[in-house]
Amino acid sequence: MTPAGALVFFGLWEAIVDLLKVPSYMVPSPSSIFVQLARKLPYLLRNLWVTGYESYGGFLLAAVIGVPLSLLIAFSPFMRKTFYPGVVALQLVPKIALAPLFITWFGFGMVPKILITFLVCFFPILLNCLLGFASLSKEVTYFARTTTAGGLRTFFLIRLPAALPQIFVGFRWAAVNATVGATVGEWVGGDAGLGYYLQIQTGELHMDIAFATIFVLALLGLSQYYLVRFLERRFIPWHVSQRSNGAAKAF
């Protein structure tokens, strides 16, 4: 969002709420949200720590398990024929629907939230890694063979770099999903975290605090997304997606 656009948006919001005297339990003004953000900062930070831990933890777990598993599936024809269709089908299944069951299984602590986050991050990562490893262009494959480089060398010097752009598509997608997973996990059964705090505050009609919580939650989501973007720029500065100045695309 451009700074000027944001300024106009929040200015209009403030003016409309002030002029029409909208009650703050319906729509709070940006200034009151900002005041609450400052006043409740200790609480927000404490809950941010919980949600951040769940969200980053689930994401990391998904990356640590998803990338090696995708290698296994991509390079074994048997595994590819057996599991690839299943992975594609599971991508369409609303996995977050399992959240209440995870609460039954693992209690109200952080573990079920980390697992829910893992679940919503795992499939985009796995699927995109598979896509990346499987879709190496023919010319490059032939070239790799002519160099008589060993399998491992070919992998690290050719296959992995060629797959990285697609792998990062998966990471970006997972980063966007991660905070959603953690928040929803807290809604279904939790006693801490920004999602929990948000639900408590809307329940008491403290909409200004609720919006402040959403603001912090959005910052958490953006931090995760931009961390992935940052890594992407470090690792694949040579790729066309990093060089083009064309229309920005989310995924």
Partner: peptide
């Protein structure tokens, strides 16, 4: 458009209780 791209990255589901 830039606003929409930014919002796409924000967990919109967080607005559900509101």
């Amino acid at each position: 458009y830039p606003a929409a791209v930014t919002l796409e990255m924000v967990p919109k589901i967080a607005f559900a209780p509101i």
